[in-house]
Computed example of a mutant assay.
Amino acid sequence: MARLTDTRVAALKPPAVGQAEYPDDLVTGLRLRIGAGGRKAWIVRTRAGTKVLNKTLGTYPTLGVGKAREEARRFLEDLATTGTPRVNRTFGQLAEDWLDKVAKPNNRSWQLQKRRLEIHVLPKWGDRKLDTIRRADVRELIESIEGEVSPNRNLTLIRTLLRYAVSRDWIESSPAEAIAKPKIENPRDRVLEMDEVRRVYVGADLLGYPAGGFIKMLLLTAQRRTEVAEMRWDQIDLDAGVWVIPSESAKSGRPHLVPLSALAVRLLRSVPRLGDYVWTSDGNSPISGFAKLKQRLDAFLAASGGALQPWVLHDLRRTAATHMVRLGVTETIVGRVLNHAVQGITARVYALHSYAPEKREALDRWAADVHREMEGCSPLSISGSAHPR
């Protein structure tokens, strides 16, 4: 038969019934299988002792002819050398194995590492075969991560996992080793003016659910991006107006009580309940893809009145904190709202409910100021009273 090429494979028609197979003349055992439905799959058929093995390598055109031959040769070489074909694991399988066998037994902060993977890495690489990850892929992923310390920490985490994969002989070398750490920036001091806050808050509506509500909740609560992303309905009491971030979700490692303003409660009552997470696209996992989300928002803002000066999502937290100080809230109380580290045994033990009334007053003042900027109306009434500007 004629040699298999990408052009010829693309032109092959499916059989009327059953399956048809086309052997490759360069790699013994490699075959293209075409089903009646039109699916074209690469398989390797060979013997291991008395058993006949049929290994599916992938589908065409995702796996082209040249790549299929490389995969087939690697499979056959591993089988000849060790007697056991290598399992080409995905990054998601690597992460699961590493978390179970290394992180959980040895690292008290493994849940934070798991969350970083779920937020930043697995949405892009969860189904990615380990041996297809290249240095450029690592660089692109790290550069897409927004924040002041997250890129470096995520690079370190990715390196750790890929080194583990090397130690298990799942890959021959790690593509993350030659990646330089992102330049450590000076601490950001970007604070959005209230006119910018208004534009972001209004523009968020154009994103729809869940992204629009997520952006608004970042502003109204001043909590960290990953904490708001993982907000769950069972953590919230809308009647009492409180959200308790559990210790495993809080960066500080301790539970944190966040009073919810009337504006925040109103927002939460307006969103659909699609699953355990408040902000979810599929009902099963928290919102992710923050870089694309912000790009969409920036495009809306640029089209509706001109682009904002450069900003990142983390700036919303700093913005809320700065304006709370402007509104007369002490830095100590703002620190409690932000869940910054507290000193002393008593402070740590009773941190959940300490300063709860003061934190509520601070977030209510901030919500009232946002409301005034949004609608140009009188201060938002909170619990029957208005806060001074």
Results as ranks from 00 to 15, higher is better:
residue 161 L to N: 00
residue 77 E to C: 04
residue 285 S to C: 01
residue 90 T to A: 10
residue 208 G to H: 01
residue 388 P to K: 12
residue 35 G to P: 06
residue 250 A to S: 10
residue 354 S to N: 15
residue 49 G to M: 10
residue 53 L to C: 14
residue 291 A to V: 01
residue 186 N to R: 05
residue 47 R to K: 15
residue 247 S to N: 07
residue 76 L to P: 02
residue 159 R to S: 01
residue 234 D to E: 15
residue 109 S to P: 02
residue 229 A to W: 11
residue 35 G to T: 15
residue 368 A to G: 13
residue 389 R to N: 04
residue 196 E to R: 06
residue 43 I to T: 15
residue 366 W to R: 02
residue 383 S to K: 11
residue 133 I to G: 00
residue 253 G to R: 07
residue 97 D to Q: 08
residue 73 R to V: 13
residue 256 H to R: 03
residue 266 R to F: 08
residue 303 A to V: 06
residue 219 L to F: 01
residue 337 V to N: 15
residue 198 R to K: 12
residue 349 V to I: 10
residue 69 R to V: 10
residue 157 L to M: 08
residue 46 T to S: 12
residue 216 K to H: 10
residue 351 A to M: 09
residue 223 Q to W: 10
residue 2 A to K: 14
residue 194 M to A: 00
residue 326 R to N: 13
residue 76 L to I: 05
residue 377 C to Q: 09
residue 185 E to H: 03
residue 309 Q to F: 08
residue 99 L to A: 06
residue 312 V to F: 04
residue 332 T to N: 06
residue 77 E to D: 13
residue 60 Y to L: 05
residue 160 T to N: 08
residue 245 I to A: 10
residue 210 P to W: 02
residue 348 R to S: 05
residue 122 L to C: 12
residue 301 L to R: 05
residue 16 A to L: 07
residue 182 P to M: 09
residue 67 K to H: 09
residue 331 E to D: 13
residue 164 Y to P: 01
residue 44 V to D: 11
residue 11 A to C: 09
residue 236 I to V: 14
residue 276 D to Y: 09
residue 143 E to F: 11
residue 51 K to G: 09
residue 6 D to H: 01
residue 337 V to P: 02
residue 47 R to Y: 15
residue 75 F to Q: 04
residue 133 I to D: 00
residue 249 S to V: 08
residue 176 A to K: 02
residue 166 V to D: 11
residue 377 C to E: 14
